[in-house]
Amino acid sequence: MNVVYTIKTLLGLAPNCKKVTSFLADYVEGTLPRKVSQQFDEHLGMCKCCGPYFDQYRTTIDLIKEGREVKLPAELVEHTMTFLRNNANLSR
């Protein structure tokens, strides 16, 4: 990170790493105010830590979302209904 930018973060004119990493969820969702989001763009573009950190955060989300399929047990509905008929006082 260049000296000018570091001074800006110290003066509170630009977000520091802690702030950027704390708000990554909102940044990814696009719910940050536009001006803040642009400040984050700038920070992520030049910070040697937050840049890769953000890529990894996003990769992690992608991997979570790829997920694995859950195989439904056969007769899930039937078994549940049998259980209900035996234990709940359903009216026909």
């Binding site: 790493c17 830590c49 950190y53």
Partner: peptide, 20 residues
């Protein structure tokens, strides 16, 4: 992560897309 004066304490090493 831990920060000192708002900056990362340790550098963040990149991930290797090939390895992933």
């Amino acid at each position: 992560p831990s920060f000192s004066k708002g900056m990362f304490v340790e550098t963040v090493a990149s991930w290797d897309p090939l390895r992933i």
